[in-house]
Amino acid sequence: MKVPVVRNVLEANEQLARENQARFREKGLLVLNLMSSPGAGKTTLLERTVDALKDQIRIGVIEGDIQSTYDAEKIARHGVPAVQINTDGGCHLDSRMIQAALPEFDLNNLDLLVVENVGNLVCPAEFDVGEDYKVMILSVTEGDDKPLKYPLMFSKSSVLLINKVDLLPYINTSVETIRRVALDINPHLEIFEVSCQNQTGLEPWFAWILARVPHYKSV
């Protein structure tokens, strides 16, 4: 006997993502889901971003890692609330984990919440957490073939930060190729070329965030 089902496999996560999203809207929060492979520079980008913007907007950070509280401690040293989620082997954050972490924050006193996902260029792309935008980092040392090899994340992201551009003179990576292929996959992608190490190219990224913070616009 055939029983028709026709149900989205990820429906449970997507339902929770909608709940998270409704809560964020109610609180007037901008929520970003930051994704990249391990070592591309997510935490360093966050440190730079927090330092540049913390006097203008109130920032909170959720750090997702398989193990350790290293990253949350690092961010907290910059003077903003940071909560660590350990997935204990899990390769991505999901909406349930985010929901569980929210009581750790005073959401009425936040303008921007950044979720730093587990370092992985594949799995996090499939799991919404209720964010407004997915933001990804690709560091130039990973190579210019990555958009073609991991198209889903490029397709789902609104912003691509190409990081570590200070290393370009030493490697065979073409930023032009990254841009061309990434834009073939997602013509609406906003691309910023940055070096978190040398702190260059970051201003347009900061401006991108500020333009989208509901509270900041209303001040």
Binding site: M1, K2, V3, P4, V5, V6, R7, N8, V9, L10, E126, L183, P187
Partner: peptide, 19 residues
């Protein structure tokens, strides 16, 4: 470049065969 994806993003359970 204004292309809408019409197939390829599916991930659903279509049916089960029950005894």
């Amino acid at each position: 470049g204004e292309v809408e994806t019409v197939g390829g993003k599916e991930l659903f359970i279509k049916e089960i065969e029950a005894e």
